[in-house]
Amino acid sequence: MPARRKAAAVAAVGIAPLALTALAPAAAHGSMGDPVSRVSQCYAEGPESPTSDACEAAVAAGGTQALYDWNGVRIGDAGGRHQELIPDGKLCSADNEAFKGLDLARADWPATSVSSGSYTFRYRVTAPHKGTFKVYVTKDGYDPTQPLAWDDLDLANPVATATDPVASGGFYTFSGTLPERSGKQLLYAVWQRSDSPEAFYSCSDVTFGGDAATVAPSASAPSEEQIEDGTDKSTVEHHGHGDDDAGTSAEPAAAPEAPVANRPKAAGATGNLAETGGDTSTPYLVMGGAGVLALGAAILFASPRRRAVSGGRHGR
């Protein structure tokens, strides 16, 4: 192949992956806000000086960074293979070493007081995408002092299932029904995206039949101010609305960018997608279109050059 044609071909091949990458969807991020997840609770207490014994132990085990990355407990290539990829004893961390403090088996995790019957779940989201939420509750006889295993969950009867709920005010809100239980229990939430194999996980400690403070400290979610203040310390690959590589894990990025928390917007302004419930497809189509145009330009550029060279040779 002549040198000029070879160069043009290489340029076209090099640009094509960029166009395809630009079309790829970005990663979502979040964690259960009500009932409060363990990682959200500990982040609300303050990563540098948590107030509860359980969160203090979690920091001692895994460090403070996991709490600043509260919205990144995920597996990039889960694709519904949750039980296959996450071993017993590591459900709350999704088998991510960075979040191992969340797997500590102890009865004093701050808990949300609940009762059997209808319940409105609120999932705090910082980058919304289509997908399905499933929330499971532990079975009767659950012992919080033992490592959480898949068999501890009533997987056959999720207490809530929601597909493509609309994000509003920074939360996905959906309804479920809590069964009869007593004492300390745990709710395990799985958010499996439908536009990517990525999935998110969270553990929320709850107490049935009484004040949570009688069993463990009451749980509380982080405020908007706390979320905003911690964004510059987050290493979750978020890039505004998500991660361009859904196959990566929630481990710190080499060149991290802070997640964008939901901020109040002026009337008429374009808000964060988590506030508007908007669709993220348009930016990726625009980016993809730019990549395709670039590819077309490379091909068009190569064509006249090829004709010019060809004409020159015939004239010799």
Rank of each mutant, 00 (worst) to 15 (best):
M287D: 03
T126W: 04
A44D: 01
D232P: 01
H82F: 06
T282K: 08
V286P: 04
P197G: 11
F200H: 12
G209W: 02
P25H: 10
W191V: 05
A216L: 07
T173Y: 02
P25Y: 04
A28D: 13
L148Q: 09
G311F: 12
D77F: 13
D152T: 13
K139V: 08
E198P: 05
P304L: 06
S52R: 06
Q65C: 09
T112Y: 10
R81F: 13
T207I: 08
T207E: 05
E45L: 15
S175Q: 12
A221R: 03
A160R: 00
V59N: 08
P87N: 12
A149Q: 05
A250S: 15
D103C: 05
G277Y: 03
N272W: 12
N157P: 03
P304D: 13
E180N: 15
D95F: 02
N71D: 05
E275Y: 15
S40I: 01
T280A: 13
R181K: 06
K184E: 12
A189Q: 02
P197S: 14
K184Q: 11
G242D: 07
D152C: 14
L285V: 10
T21D: 15
S116K: 14
P25S: 09
Q83M: 11
A127K: 08
T161Q: 13
W70R: 04
H314R: 14
E45N: 12
T132I: 10
G315A: 14
P217E: 01
K90I: 01
R306N: 07
S37R: 02
R306P: 01
A28G: 13
E237H: 05
A8W: 08
A261M: 09
S234Q: 06
A22T: 08
L20I: 11
C92E: 02
A22D: 04
L155I: 08
Y188E: 00
P256N: 11
V309W: 01
P110H: 08
D151Q: 15
T173W: 01
C203S: 03
A107D: 11
A98Q: 05
A98D: 06
S31Q: 11
P35R: 00
K90N: 09
A7Y: 04
A8N: 05
L20D: 10
P2V: 11
G242E: 08
G296C: 12
A250K: 05
D95P: 02
